[in-house]
Amino acid sequence: MGVGASSVAFRVDSLFWWMTMLSVLISAGIAIALVTFAIKYRRRSPDEVPVQIEGALRLELTWTFIPLILSIITFVWAAILFVQMSRPEDDALEIFVQGRQWMWKAQHPTGQWENNELHVPVNQPVKLSMTSIDVIHNFAVPAFRVRQDVLPGRYTTLPFTATRPGVYNIFCSEFCGAFHSGMVGRVTVMEPREYQAWLSGATQMESPAATGQRLAQNLGCTTCHRDDNRRRAPSWVGLYGTQETLDTGETVTVDDEYIRESILYPQRKIVAGYARPSIMPTYQGQLDETQLAQIIAYIRSLGGMNQQQPGGDSSVPSTDATPGLEPNSGAPGGGAQDEP
């Protein structure tokens, strides 16, 4: 399986080698039986008719239940490990990743961004919060044994903890057009102080939340979404992560996905007590994915309940994401490349 450099690599490899061992034993057993029988019981005269054996129930049950039990053991093992792999740690470092044809962009919570490169501290849980601006991509780091599709119009998360300093490949693992195989990058795992040094070496820039605040003012969002007057629209203060009741009676958690949906499709899910149709205009076509993420970061920065989604459902990002990306600004010291 190659060099393992994450907290789950050893456990994934153990499972892999367990299955490999079973597979080799089973295949070898069958191959030996086939070859032995084919030689030992080869036809010796043209009119030979062998004893007819129609079957044996006990044997059938044996070779049904033994594989079934082995299957269930393997399934449970793999499923438990998968749940552990999919659930981000509470104190994970949030990095926002954007995929596009054919490059990766990443932005750190402190604002630094990089292209086709990712710098992470060793032994620190990291959670990538990812989206695509065009087609489906897949962020894969074979050395970490992790892989997650990056979808347009949605956020997916990829948690990992790197455990060995070094430089590892990032591959796009979902076919995304002609230069799919060029959508590769490098992840550099560094000692925490080196990471801090790298961060400070990078150009300091406005945090995503601050950009989001400016955007929200310029677009007029805060004209209605005010804390001192909640008649026209819900206030954003303390909103993030809470449960809201909709006018249909359903409840919804205010997370990245819901905020994004409400900005683009304000008529879809209206909070109970507000007019339907909503007075809010759609911002579809006016905001790109980067700006959407910045506004979400701003709303999150205004506080709210910090609750984790159950089960680590990857389609619902957990609540402490720090999306945000500053395009067209200077590259940090991380050897960022421009798009091809």
């Binding site: 499972l15 892999f16 299955m19 079973l22 393997t74 093992w77 894969a140 992790v146 892989r147 693992s173």
Partner: peptide, 17 residues
């Protein structure tokens, strides 16, 4: 048998695509 590596969740994450 190699199909089972892909049916098992954790190994599929490492081997998918």
């Amino acid at each position: 048998l190699t199909g089972l590596f892909l049916a098992a969740l954790a190994t599929d994450v490492a081997l998918s695509d």
